[in-house]
Amino acid sequence: MVEKRGAGLWLTHLGLIIGVAFIFFPIWLAFVASTVSQPEIVRPPMPLWPGDQFFENYSKALTAGVNAPVALMLGNSLFMALGIAIGKIAISLLSAFAIVYFKFPGKKLFFWLIFLTLMLPVEVRIVPTYEVIANFGMLNSYQGLILPLIASATATFLFRQFFMTVPDELAEAARVDGAGPMRFFFDILLPMSRTNIAALFVILFIYGWNQYLWPLLITTDPDMNTIVMGIKQMFPSGDDIADWPVIMATSILAMVPPVIVVVGMQKLFIRGLVESEK
């Protein structure tokens, strides 16, 4: 097949470049604002090229904060996002495996009960969830941040659909070779699911990283604050003046871990969305 080249190709690339520019320009402005001084930001026009305050602003952002250092809040967010992503994937894999490969009374009923929880987001069940976490003494703890958010009906449904496409002959061959259920799960199903796991990991990591309401509710200790909470706390109230270079530097730092995850797992992420590997 001969690829057609001409004005249409150039217009397509031009449209893509313009779209990327529109998306990237606000991020560029935030980066520029994080490298200049406060007077340069508040005095129009705002500069469009980086200044000479890069190291000063970023070092101040990492060591300073309203209630806790930004470096500590970044660590809290990273631990929370990793715990949520890994926990959701582990529980969803095991629950989908049980639903597809085991026979027990009420199997379909349990699956649909899991699926119906999609209509109950955290905001709807936040009061009883908070009461449970408080009764277990998990306030101001990583367990309290992670455990209520690790169940995922969406991931369970996706893994169930994938497992149902795996040929039955594989399970029969494993059974003939003497492999038990968990051996079949770890040696066959898990390697086949790696692209799906990668795609879900990216989505769930960003989901956990962007959590705001739940950490805000259960953390009263400043040392347990997440970076999303920290950015909100940096905005002044009343007539106070915002330290915009530090706020912008903190915002850029908050974008770095999700960007690293997306870029580092880009190929597996795309493969997990567009193909089934068997």
Rank of each mutant, 00 (worst) to 15 (best):
P191W: 08
S141G: 08
E123H: 13
T195K: 13
L149M: 14
P181N: 14
F162P: 00
I203H: 10
P191D: 01
A171P: 00
S152P: 01
A198N: 01
E172Q: 13
F136W: 15
L190I: 13
P167R: 09
N140G: 05
E123A: 15
I197S: 01
M192N: 03
F201V: 10
V176C: 02
R183S: 14
I206C: 06
I133T: 11
A199H: 03
T195Q: 13
T165P: 00
V124R: 10
N196Y: 09
A155R: 08
V127C: 03
I146M: 07
Y142M: 11
F162A: 10
N140T: 09
A171T: 04
L158W: 04
L200E: 10
Y130I: 09
A153F: 05
F186A: 14
A179D: 07
S193P: 00
N140A: 12
D168E: 12
Y142S: 03
A198H: 02
D187W: 03
T156N: 03
I126N: 05
E123K: 03
P191A: 01
A173N: 08
R160I: 04
I203R: 14
S193E: 07
D177Y: 02
R183F: 01
G137M: 07
E131W: 09
A134D: 14
I133E: 05
I146C: 06
F159T: 04
P148D: 06
I150G: 03
L190G: 04
E169T: 11
L200M: 13
L139R: 11
F185R: 02
A155H: 07
I206N: 10
F163M: 11
G137V: 09
V166Q: 04
I133W: 02
E169H: 10
I146A: 03
G178W: 00
S141F: 07
P191R: 09
L145E: 11
V127S: 04
L139P: 00
L190F: 13
F163S: 05
T129M: 12
L204R: 11
I146R: 06
F185D: 08
N135L: 11
L189N: 11
R194V: 06
L170T: 02
G144V: 09
F157E: 06
L149H: 06
S193Y: 07
G180K: 04
I133G: 05
F205A: 02
F136D: 05
I126T: 10
G137L: 05
A134K: 15
V132I: 15
V122Y: 11
E131F: 12
P167C: 04
I126P: 01
S141M: 10
L139G: 03
E131R: 15
M192I: 06
F185W: 02
R183P: 02
E169D: 11
N140D: 15
G137A: 07
D177F: 01
P128W: 10
A153K: 01
I133A: 13
